[in-house]
C-alpha cells in the first residue's frame, strides 16, 4: 500500500510538471501579452514592466524560474491585479469557492445517490418517473439559466434571497443550487442505471434466493457495486466544483476564484492562468487517486498494485 501510494504521488507530480510545462509554452505562443492595451503603452514603460517581471529573459530561463517557484509554492505575481501575487488571489478566493463547492458536492452525493436508489427500486413507478423527469431537466438546463431564474424568482420577485454576494448566509443557497443542478441529476441517473444493472446480476439473485433480507441485499451486496461508476464520476466532479465556476460566481457576484480562469486568459495574465491550471490539475489528480483507493475499498477484487484486476 505504501509503495503504491509513493508511486502514485510521484506519477502525479510528474503529470503536474508536464501540465505546467505545456500550459507555460502554449500561453506564450498565443498573440497578445499582459501589457497589450487599446492605447499602447510607451516603449520605455513596456521595457520597465518586462524587466520588473523578468519577461525580458529568454523564455526557457523564465520557464525554469517559474518551475523553481512552483516547487516552493510561489506562483508569482499577477501582471494585471497590481501588487497581488497569485498566492494572494488563491488564498483570498479559494476558501469561498471551496465552501460553496463543498456544500454542493456533499448535497449532490447525499441527495443524488438516494434518489437514484429509490428510483431504481421503484422502477417505472410515479416516483421513478418524477425523479427521472427532474434529472433530465437538471442535465439539460444550463446552470446560468438556473442561476438567473433563482435570482429573478427568489431575489427580485419574492425578496427571499439576497440578490448578490454571500455576506448574508442565505446568499449561499442560490449558487449551491445552480452549481448542483447538472451533477445532481447526472449522479441520480447514474446511480439508478447502475443499480438496475447490478440488481439483475446473478449474485444478487443468489443472495435473495438464500433468504437474505431485502435491505441487506440492497445495501450490503448491490449498492456497493452499483456505486463504482458513480464514484468514478464524483471524483473529478468534486475537483471541478471546488475550484469554482466562472458562470455561477459571476452571476451571483461571489468573490471566488472561478472568474480568474477566464479573466486570466482574457488579460493574458500568465501567472494567474498557470496558477489556476496547476491548482485545478492538482485537485483533479488527487481526486482520481482517491477514486482509485475507493475502488479497492468497495470491491476487494480490484487490487491497487494493478495485478489481479
Amino acid at each position: 500500500m505504501a509503495k503504491y501510494l509513493i508511486k502514485r504521488v510521484l506519477t502525479a507530480l510528474f503529470t503536474l510538471l508536464v501540465i505546467a510545462t505545456i500550459t507555460f509554452f502554449l500561453l506564450r505562443a498565443i498573440p497578445g501579452g499582459p501589457f497589450t492595451r487599446e492605447k499602447p503603452l510607451p516603449d520605455a514603460i513596456i521595457r520597465a514592466l518586462n524587466e520588473k517581471y523578468n519577461l525580458d529573459e529568454p523564455l526557457f530561463i523564465q520557464y525554469l524560474s517559474y518551475i523553481k517557484g512552483l516547487l516552493t509554492f510561489d506562483l508569482g505575481p499577477s501582471y494585471r491585479i497590481l501588487g497581488y501575487t497569485v498566492n494572494d488571489i488563491i488564498i483570498s478566493g479559494f476558501p469561498t469557492s471551496a465552501l460553496i463547492g463543498g456544500i454542493a458536492s456533499l448535497l449532490i452525493v447525499v441527495i443524488g445517490i438516494p434518489l437514484g436508489i429509490v428510483s431504481a427500486l421503484k422502477q417505472n413507478s410515479p416516483v421513478d418517473y418524477m425523479v427521472m423527469f427532474m434529472a433530465t431537466l437538471g442535465v439539460t438546463v444550463p446552470n446560468f439559466i438556473i442561476a438567473t431564474l433563482i435570482i429573478y424568482i427568489f431575489s427580485t420577485q419574492l425578496g427571499w434571497l439576497p440578490s448578490n454576494g454571500i455576506s448574508n448566509p442565505l446568499g449561499y443557497i442560490g449558487p449551491v443550487i445552480a452549481l448542483m443542478g447538472y451533477s445532481l441529476s447526472f449522479v441520480s441517473r447514474l446511480t439508478r442505471s447502475s443499480m438496475l444493472e447490478v440488481l439483475r446480476q446473478d449474485y444478487v439473485r443468489t443472495a435473495r434466493a438464500n433468504g437474505i433480507s431485502e435491505r441487506k441485499v440492497i445495501f450490503k451486496h448491490a449498492l456497493k457495486n452499483a456505486l463504482i461508476p458513480v464514484i468514478t464520476y464524483v471524483g473529478p466532479m468534486v475537483a471541478a466544483i471546488l475550484t469554482g465556476s466562472f458562470v455561477v460566481e459571476k452571476i451571483f457576484a461571489i468573490p471566488g476564484i472561478g472568474r480568474y480562469f477566464v479573466q486570466g486568459v482574457t488579460n493574458r495574465d500568465y501567472t494567474v492562468i498557470m496558477g489556476m491550471t496547476v491548482l485545478y490539475s492538482a485537485f483533479y489528480i488527487f481526486m482520481i487517486l482517491l477514486v482509485d483507493l475507493a475502488y479497492s475499498w468497495i470491491d476487494p477484487r480490484i487490487r491497487l498494485e494493478g495485478g489481479a484486476r
Binding site: Y152, T156, N164, I251, A253
Partner: peptide, 18 residues
C-alpha cells in the same frame, strides 16, 4: 461599493433595492 461585473445581476440587485 460592490464589484458586480455581471450587468444582469447588478440590475436585479438594483431592482431588489440592494
Amino acid at each position: 461599493a460592490k464589484f458586480i461585473d455581471d450587468a444582469s445581476t447588478a440590475y436585479a440587485s438594483y431592482q431588489s433595492g440592494d
